[in-house]
Computed example of a mutant assay.
Amino acid sequence: MASNQTSLNDAKFALPINDVEQQATLEIETEDFDYSKRAQWLRAAVLGANDGLVSTASLMMGVGAVKQDIKVMILTGFAGLVAGACSMAIGEFVSVHSQLDIELAQMKREKERRNNGGKEEQEEGENKESLPNPLQAAAASALAFSVGALVPLLAASFIRGYKVRLGVVVAAVTLALLIFGWIGAVLGKAPTVKSSLRVLVGGWLAMAITFGLTKLIGSSGL
């Protein structure tokens, strides 16, 4: 009788442990999966914002090399923001839509090979949920680019002095490059200092080359 009672107590004690372990395992797997998907989207957003930041700032610095008028500089930056956001959105839409067409064609081929009834319908429904969304990707790319491009635009909008304006743009872009580089490194699990410096030096080179070449062409009278 005592042995039966002991075995019953062990069974009652073992079941909750198994349930808790199984639930904890499922939660860990779910968290890892969600984090992976979230990290990919965030990293893509950071790269898009960095692209908008560098390209718009370089464009403004290039025009600023030959035109000191604040209106010309702001209009140039705004045009770069709109053109870049549209380009990013269209490019991302076409790219993701091509990927979508390929995956749909692959699903169609797999569907023709299998005739398993309910199982096939269930798998097909799960696959459709994981398909990429071209409109969502296009909107995210355009938004990320615009966020980055706003940094040099806002930095130059309220400063009349030419040299001070250029200095403030460079300072604001430098800070933003460091932040974007650090975030991208964290999301990509890369060394933060090296990644941030690499992004910073790349941004500086882009602005310096654009400024220098435009200054050279402008001074030559072309």
Rank of each mutant, 00 (worst) to 15 (best):
M73N: 14
H97T: 07
S95Q: 14
G77M: 06
S55V: 00
R113T: 12
L131S: 05
L100P: 07
N133V: 00
L59G: 10
I70L: 10
L135C: 07
E123D: 15
H97P: 02
M73Q: 14
G117E: 14
M73R: 10
A79T: 01
G84I: 00
G118L: 15
V66C: 08
E103A: 06
V54C: 05
A83R: 01
S87F: 03
G80H: 09
A57E: 04
E112Q: 13
K71L: 11
G52T: 06
I102S: 05
S95Y: 14
L131N: 06
Q99H: 14
P134Q: 12
L59E: 07
G64S: 08
S58P: 02
K111G: 06
N133F: 01
A137Y: 07
I90Q: 15
Q136D: 11
S58C: 01
L53R: 02
T56R: 04
K128T: 05
M61W: 07
K67R: 13
K71S: 13
A105W: 05
E126F: 01
F93P: 12
E92G: 02
A79I: 00
V63E: 09
L135S: 13
Q68Y: 04
E124G: 00
A138I: 00
K108I: 06
Q99G: 15
G84R: 07
V94W: 14
A89D: 10
N133H: 10
K111R: 15
N115I: 00
E124Q: 08
V72S: 15
Q106C: 01
G117S: 08
H97Y: 14
A137Q: 10
F93M: 13
E92T: 05
K111I: 12
S87V: 00
T56K: 03
M107N: 09
M73H: 08
P134E: 12
E112M: 11
G52D: 07
I90V: 13
P134D: 12
L131T: 06
P132D: 14
G64D: 10
K119W: 08
E92C: 03
S55W: 01
E120D: 13
M61D: 03
I70K: 11
V72Y: 10
S87A: 11
P134Y: 13
Q136M: 03
P134A: 10
L81Q: 07
S55A: 02
H97S: 12
E92P: 03
I74K: 01
E103K: 11
N115S: 09
N115C: 05
A138H: 12
S130C: 04
N50D: 13
Q106P: 00
T76Y: 06
L75A: 11
S95F: 11
V72W: 08
E126D: 12
T76M: 06
E121D: 11
M107L: 10
I74T: 02
E112W: 09
L75W: 08
A57F: 05
Q136H: 09
R113Y: 06
K111T: 15
S87Y: 06
I90K: 15
V94R: 11
E123Q: 15
F78D: 04
N127D: 10
K128D: 06
V72I: 11
R109P: 00
V96Y: 12
P132E: 14
G91C: 03
